[in-house]
Amino acid sequence: MEPFRFSYVNIGNTMLQQLTNLSDKDLISRARKLKDQEAEGVLLERYSHLMVAVCLPYLNTAPGTAADDVFPALLQRLSNSLKTQTIHKVNEWIHYNVKAIQDKSDRNLPFFSSTESREIQQVENRIEQAAMNQKEQQQLIAQMNVVISQLPAEEKYFLTQFYLEQQPLAQLAGAKKYSIDKTRQILKNAKQHMASILMKQTYEQ
């Protein structure tokens, strides 16, 4: 029977498992503050399949582009950007950089999250904080009900059907004879509209 050998590979695997359980925010923090490249790698690997999927049309259509060139360049760009950019949502940051690689004109512009995105994120944070406080949660629910009633009828309908009645996206699109993309866009706009009203009310208070 061979004795157990303690090796770097074992440490690496254990470390990777531990890092995999961390949230995006923690991984970014580790990569920045501790210069932990393993954390950076775990974060990029977490989204790598989506990068591949998004880049596939570009790899097939654009002339002189190969996966061996595009992905290392993309990963390097993301790695550099990670150390300098403020990243609230990793998916938005990766999507922006993938598009920037594909549209070479935007290459040098840094990533900034949009105002709408920041408003949505602020409301999301507020709801997360209210989860521990019943009274605050009730106040927030009442406020959201008021805001939904102020929205246009179509947006109100889609939000109610999708989030409250839990109708699938395809079914909702079929009921209105819209495409899934359009239905998604209506829902996205309705959500952004609602977030901006909520944040406006918060600032006015």
Binding site: I127, I141, L159, Y163, L164
Partner: peptide, 9 residues
């Protein structure tokens, strides 16, 4: 009422 919070989950 609770489901309405899912909009921003």
């Amino acid at each position: 009422n609770d489901k309405i919070l899912k909009i921003f989950s």
